[in-house]
Design a protein around this nucleic acid. Structure first.
Length: 552
RNA sequence: GCCCCGGUAGCUCAGCUGGAUAGAGCAUCUGCCUUCUAAGCAGAGGGUCACAGGUUCGAGUCCUGUCCGGGGUACCA
């Protein structure tokens, strides 16, 4: 039956660590920080330590000899879960964990259920994640999609680590871009009415601008005059509606929208300027207002207010960040594309100069998406309307595929999104590999139920002995540790890789072991095992925001 | 010029705080469906980890330099 211990891997490592320290002491060996890490190769057991290799210099002996001495001394300090230890060249000590440790872990997982793997790191804490933050000048493109999915997954990771998360969208609605957008609509409006019009030089050329103009004719009539605020207002509203729709198609819902205008209206920008002035960090030159970033250790000063009287994005962005900090989140996450990599250091520097702590701000920079169509790169520009919208993409290949494609690469890597591959070969898409595993498990359970085998806590874990079964448990055990790792890195790709490996372990197990058989005891043990696998799939896919289908 | 990210199999990419024989998917080739879902499994081929130095018992991983690709940087966001 069940072993009495339910130690987590972490505890086991700690106990082993203590044992090694004790044996070093008994040998009168010096102590150095060493590692106990999972062995990559099954031939090297489950855990390995490099302690002997680190002591070669101090002891002036071959590492393998040191390893043997430590191994001998260690024998009486070994935790009971360690079955055997062995020395292997060049001087590693490898440990094999007993099967019963793994077997007993099944009930631990089952007990924790849907909470298996969840961490308490953020218990009682709040976090704010700002992402997408595209200005409402056009529909979201595939390029925005990466940030949208990334931000949502990062938010999910924080929630999984018990944070109370606010998903936030910030946009600039007072600047030059929005003005040009309004002018573009205005031009199309007059064009549609057959009147004289002048299309702005940097105007937005997409057909959606014409659509907006048409809808203004319908709702506001034909008598608007040049410079009417309604052009800009209407286009902003309509585009925002589209943006929100694109996001919700992907399962993404922001809790809060913040905009630049607010900070002009509530005086926050004025206040920021005067606070910086008081610190002597603002000066006028060449008709513009400058922030003395050089005084904060930067290479050059930055323009805060252009000679035209319009502020650059830095000023409202800084006021916005100050506002976020004032809202007292324990953690503030900003997600930006590589094109914004240079903007945030100035924002943080200005805040620091005002003695505002920015230690709890984490900035994540993701690289760009390159869109491939017919094997060729598609250059995207919102202004030139040369883009594939996120909405089209989701319609074509589905939410799950889009989400998975966007987080399957680390954010520091460029992402090649092959449209043909995503659409035509969706059968071979890696996301289906994961979902298929989950659907298979569900199917086995249904099959079992039909034959009267229902899952129960009464099972004999010691019957789980096959290599593929133990490999499966070994992988499942890593999940809690992985969750904390995800919090550290805020990198969803790590989870995607983990789930791929889990699926691989499961499919191998499936090929080797039949779950529902005449052997009732074994059937129940294996049902317990696959229940755990299903649990981790469903928890993991939940974090990625990808559905876990019952059947495919 | 300077700053950031990348350069790993034909293609797209993993590789945790440096560790033992560098991995996956796609593509190519060979087997496996009367047995819980073949969207799967088993196997084969494919690599001077861009290049050159350095640190280390040990480097794809750390440091320096060079080359290539992407991004940023001079009042656009």
């Amino acid at each position: 039956m069940l072993q009495p211990f339910h130690l987590k891997m972490k505890d086991l490592k700690q106990n082993l660590n203590k044992g090694i320290l004790a044996s070093l002491q008994s040998l009168k060996f010096p102590t150095k920080p060493f590692s106990i890490s999972p062995s990559k190769n099954p031939n090297f057991g489950d855990l390995s330590t490099n302690v002997a290799l680190l002591l070669t210099k101090d002891l002036k002996k071959p590492p393998i000899q040191i390893a043997e001495e430590i191994q001998t001394a260690l024998k009486k300090y070994l935790p009971s879960e360690i079955e055997t230890s062995a020395v292997s060249p060049p001087g590693f000590i490898n440990f094999v964990i007993s099967d019963s440790f793994y077997q007993s872990y099944i009930s631990t997982m089952l007990t924790e259920g849907p909470d298996f793997g969840r961490s308490n790191i953020g218990k009682g804490k709040t976090a704010n994640v700002e992402f997408v933050s595209a200005n409402p000048t056009g529909p979201l493109t595939v390029g925005h999609g990466r940030q949208a999915v990334l931000g949502d997954c990062v938010s999910n990771i924080l929630e999984w680590n018990s944070f109370d998360v606010t998903r936030e969208y910030y946009y600039n609605d007072a600047g030059r871009q929005m003005r040009i957008l309004g002018q573009s609509v205005e031009a199309r409006y007059f064009e549609a009415l057959g009147k004289k019009f002048e299309f702005p030089e940097d105007g937005y050329q997409g057909d959606y601008i014409k659509d907006v103009a048409e809808s203004i004719i319908e709702t506001e009539g034909k008598s608007l005059s040049a410079g009417d605020e309604r052009f800009r207002q209407t286009v902003e509203e309509l585009i925002f509606t589209k943006i929100k729709k694109s996001l919700s198609d992907l399962g993404i819902i922001h809790d809060q929208f913040s905009n630049e205008k607010t900070f002009y209206e509530n005086g926050a920008i004025k206040q920021l300027l005067s606070d910086l002035k008081e610190k002597n960090l603002i000066y006028e030159a060449e008709g513009a207002t400058w922030l003395k970033t050089t005084a904060m250790g930067k290479e050059q000063d930055r323009v805060y207010i252009k000679s035209s009287g319009e502020p650059t994005y830095r000023l409202p962005d800084t006021a916005y960040h100050r506002d976020k900090i004032n809202r007292n989140y324990d953690l503030v996450v900003d997600i930006f594309g590589a094109d914004h990599a240079d903007t945030y250091p100035d924002v943080l520097a200005a805040l620091s100069a005002l003695d505002i702590s920015v230690d709890h701000i984490r900035v994540l920079i993701h690289q760009f998406v390159t869109l491939l169509r017919d094997g060729e790169k598609v250059k995207m520009s919102t202004r030139k309307a040369n883009f594939v919208t996120l909405e089209e993409l989701v319609k074509e290949v589905g939410k799950d595929v889009v989400r998975y494609f966007f987080i399957m690469r680390s954010m520091s890597s460029h992402l090649d999104f092959d449209l043909d591959l995503a659409a035509d070969q969706s059968d071979k898409n890696p996301v289906f590999y994961l979902q298929y595993a989950h659907a298979r498990i569900t199917n086995i359970m249904k099959h079992g139920e039909a034959l009267g085998h229902t899952f129960s806590q009464n099972f004999d874990a010691s019957l789980i002995q096959e290599k593929t079964e133990l490999a499966l448990i070994k992988h499942l055990i890593r999940f809690p540790e992985l969750s904390e790792q995800l919090y550290e890195s805020l990198e969803p790709q790590v989870l995607a890789t983990y789930l791929q490996e889990l699926a691989s372990h499961f499919h191998k197990f499936y090929g080797k072991c039949k779950v529902i058989t005449d052997d009732k005891a074994l059937t129940h043990s294996r049902l317990a095992l696959i229940t755990c696998v299903k649990l981790v799939f469903s928890n993991g896919l939940h974090i990625l925001g990808i559905s876990a289908p019952e059947r495919m």
